[in-house]
Deep mutational scan, measured.
Amino acid sequence: SSGGSSILDRAVIEHNLLSASKLYNNITFEELGALLEIPAAKAEKIASQMITEGRMNGFIDQIDGIVHFETR
């Protein structure tokens, strides 16, 4: 797709992000992006959206560029 990722790509990214949230206590956007094979800024945006929508527990430290995952 030309304008970003398809629905399937997005679903795969979100699935992998949720998997990462179970493996890590926290991770930088750079590391997360590398893990998900997407730019760091996109990793931040998707993580932020999932947390806001209540689909993933955690919070974002924008100063240090880190996602902190919280286990249920």
Rank of each mutant, 00 (worst) to 15 (best):
S21W: 02
L8M: 13
K45W: 10
R72T: 13
N25V: 09
T52S: 13
D64P: 06
L32H: 00
I60Q: 01
N26G: 06
L23M: 13
I66V: 14
D61T: 07
R10Q: 14
H68K: 04
G33Y: 01
E70L: 09
E37I: 05
F69E: 01
S1A: 13
L32D: 00
E44C: 13
E70D: 11
L8V: 13
K42Y: 15
I63S: 09
L35N: 02
A47D: 00
E70N: 10
P39Y: 03
N57W: 06
P39S: 12
I27W: 05
D61W: 05
N25C: 11
A11M: 13
E44T: 09
A41I: 09
M50H: 01
K45N: 08
L8Y: 09
Q62D: 09
I13L: 10
K45Q: 15
A40D: 03
L36Q: 01
E14F: 05
P39D: 10
A43V: 12
F29K: 02
S21H: 03
I46N: 00
V12P: 05
L36M: 05
I27Q: 02
G65V: 03
I66E: 06
L35Y: 08
S6W: 01
V67I: 15
I27P: 02
T28D: 03
A20S: 05
V67Q: 01
L18P: 02
K42Q: 15
G54R: 06
E14Y: 05
Y24C: 07
I60A: 02
A41S: 13
S2Y: 01
L17G: 02
Q49E: 15
R72L: 13
Q49F: 04
Y24M: 08
I38F: 01
E53V: 05
R55L: 08
K45V: 10
S21T: 06
A34S: 08
Q49T: 07
I60W: 03
S5T: 13
E53F: 02
N57M: 11
K42G: 07
I7S: 12
A47C: 12
H68I: 09
E14A: 04
A43F: 03
G54K: 07
G54C: 06
R10L: 13
F29L: 10
S21M: 07
F59Q: 07
G33S: 07
L8Q: 11
E14N: 03
I51Y: 01
T71E: 11
Q62T: 14
I13P: 01
S21G: 07
I63P: 06
L18W: 04
L23E: 09
L35P: 00
L8D: 13
L32K: 00
G65A: 06
S6N: 11
S48I: 10
G58W: 08
L8F: 12
I27Y: 04
V12F: 09
T28N: 05
G54L: 04
H15W: 06
I66G: 04
S21N: 03
M56G: 01
E31H: 08
Q49W: 04
S21E: 05
R10N: 10
I38L: 07
M56D: 01
L35C: 05
L17A: 02
G3N: 12
K22M: 10
N16E: 09
A11C: 12
S2M: 08
T52E: 14
G54V: 02
I60R: 00
D64F: 14
T52C: 12
L8E: 09
L36E: 00
L8G: 10
A20F: 14
I51H: 01
L17Q: 02
T71P: 14
S48M: 11
D61V: 08
S2V: 12
A40I: 06
D61Y: 06
G33A: 10
K45R: 10
I51D: 01
I38K: 00
K42S: 14
N16D: 07
G33V: 04
T71M: 07
A20W: 10
H15T: 12
I38R: 00
E31A: 12
D9R: 03
I38C: 05
G33P: 00
L32Q: 00
T71D: 14
E31L: 10
P39Q: 05
I66A: 07
L18N: 05
L32S: 00
R72E: 11
K45E: 15
E30V: 12
F29C: 03
S48T: 10
E53A: 08
A43T: 04
S6F: 04
D61H: 07
G3S: 11
F69L: 04
E44S: 12
E37P: 01
D9H: 05
M50I: 03
I13C: 05
L35M: 08
I46K: 01
Q62E: 10
L8P: 14
N25G: 08
E53T: 08
G58K: 01
L17E: 02
L23F: 09
M50Y: 02
I46V: 07
V67E: 01
L8C: 14
V12H: 10
T71K: 14
Q62V: 14
E14H: 04
A47L: 11
V67S: 01
F59P: 00
K45H: 11
V12Y: 10
V12K: 11
G33D: 00
V67F: 05
N57K: 14
G58F: 02
G65I: 02
A41D: 13
N16G: 12
I7Q: 14
S21R: 02
G4V: 12
